[in-house]
Write a protein that binds this DNA or RNA. Structure first.
Lengths: 162, 162
DNA sequence: CCGTATCCACAACGATACTG
DNA sequence: CAGTATCGTTGTGGATACGG
């Protein structure tokens, strides 16, 4: 990248105010990232997070409450039938906007850490074109939303579904 | 996102093989992310990392060696004049491809954690259009490279450069 | 089924001190 | 200037046990 303008204070803006640093304070741990990933995949229940993130219940509880504090997710009661109140977790609008972060991580991992190819495929639900994360400088480039994206397990070649 | 295909094994592909999880194993800590950010900003020297990431020397040393092990950065000697050999750190090609990850973090932080607006602005070096991270499903959308991006400190309104 | 509380192990961090 | 070594503290995570 090419730095322009007043750069004498180069050391100043790095540490405190950097937006990446602030975002990372929220998504502090690996578990937090993966909980957000699961939310995009539609997971809403505590127990499913535990199993699908592959971590312990306390870790999930910590991640969920931190994300809630940060306004990334909202905890809402479901099945309000009688005495047993249960919560489900959903992304807020702010949380939905984390999709590029997650997709960028997946895309890099697909390209560099998956010798056998990507385990998952992401396609536009209408055009069936492959979805990718791109850096663009065109204001008119449309932004895909999460519900327009289709996730499929990648089965190599035409594999008949038994 | 809409999950399609065989989903019985939903719990399986989440934990082990997920590309996001694997990427996060490399960028395990906040310091690792910020070191990568600094590399994009052109930082190459140990001491500059320490100051600009705002952390301690051992933390930087750890982050650098982990990133080197992962093939994200390469350590090359500079100023080979005589007895004093020093190293500089640069992104590998694989490392360069982490730019969408960093930009996505910055973009989210700009939108949600900066009440006074983004501290930095990113523009296409030729068109001067603003750069953003987008999810696209069009194969022909061009990908901006890091050297086509211009970084400027955001000074509100027209502030004369003294 | 949905979590929380407690405890222990380990990894990451900062402070400090030291080497070339 | 460019790191490494050590150490005490904190944060993160897993195991287990417990309560709604």
């Amino acid at each position: 990248m090419r730095l322009v303008g007043p750069l004498q204070d180069r050391d100043a803006w790095a540490a405190d105010a950097c937006s990446a640093a602030r975002t990372l304070d929220i998504l502090a741990t690996k578990a937090s990232f993966l909980v957000v990933r699961e939310l995009f995949y539609g997971t809403t229940r505590f127990d499913d997070f535990v199993r699908r993130v592959g971590t312990s219940a306390p870790t999930i509880a910590r991640a969920l409450s931190r994300l809630e504090d940060a306004g990334v997710i909202a905890r809402t009661p479901y099945r309000t039938d009688g005495h047993r109140a249960r919560d489900e977790y959903r992304l807020t609008e702010a949380g939905e906007e984390l999709l590029p972060v997650i997709m960028a991580l997946i895309q890099w991992g697909d390209a560099h850490l998956q010798p056998d190819g990507p385990p998952l495929r992401f396609h536009d639900v209408t055009t069936q074109q492959q979805v990718r994360v791109a850096l663009v400088a065109t204001p008119d480039t449309p932004q895909l939303e999460s519900r327009q994206i289709q996730v499929a397990v990648h089965s190599p070649a035409g594999r008949a579904n038994s």
